[in-house]
Design a protein around this nucleic acid. Structure first.
Lengths: 106, 106
DNA sequence: TACTTGCGCAACCGTTCAGTTGCAAATATA
DNA sequence: TATATTTGCAACTGAACGGTTGCGCAAGTA
């Protein structure tokens, strides 16, 4: 069982839940109202999000509010930055080649 | 079968492949040398990456070079920006509440 | 106390995933 | 032509997903 941020955001419902509770903590029932799936299905997603350390729970009587913990989200950013660095340097390499070709022709 | 960028980057091997071929196009065999899995397994990942429109192929004799198409990667960036916007406005909301409380106390 | 509500947990089901092995096709080389 | 190389495709396997229903427990409420 892989439990990382990338697994967490792989599912579209989970992405929607993340955006939903990003602004304010919500209960499973409240979240489920926004989707066409059962509360239990939402609970499963919340459990996965919890295991990925993207979500924390706060008990309030018999209600449990799920709130986002944004720190793990930075890992996506980090990976994306790494990719961008390589991706942009690719063009630099191409530039170098073109430059070399150009210089050789002169 | 869900085929989007988020599905593509969900697997760690696939993320590694993306970073690997980001700088230069490679053949399945060359890619497989970097991992402890068979060439066929790499091919499967490449097929998924192709279906997600993250990768394009270029035939060269009996070799096929797989190269990255960076455009789809922007979708991750887009979603992440959407999240950040909501996430940061969350603090603004909190600020509003605190401000209201402060004003009410006065 | 009895009833309702909100929730997690367990069992189950069909589908997808990530990997394997085996094989056929196409290309290059002796 | 015969052989080796590079690849894609198909079949299979065990594990994980995403969903469901059903149940039990704890917390409010009549």
């Amino acid at each position: 069982m892989r439990r990382d941020v990338f697994q967490a955001i792989a599912d579209p419902t989970r992405r929607a839940i993340i955006l939903l509770i990003a602004s304010q903590a919500m209960t499973p029932n409240a979240i489920a109202e926004h989707f066409d799936i059962t509360r239990q299905a939402v609970s499963k997603h919340l459990r996965i999000l919890t295991e990925c350390q993207l979500v924390k729970q706060e008990q309030a009587g018999r209600e449990i509010f799920y709130q986002l913990d944004g720190t793990k989200m930075q890992e996506i950013d980090k990976w994306l930055e790494e990719f961008k660095k390589i991706w942009e340097s690719r063009f630099n390499e191409l530039d170098k080649v073109l430059l070399t070709l150009k210089n050789n022709k002169q």
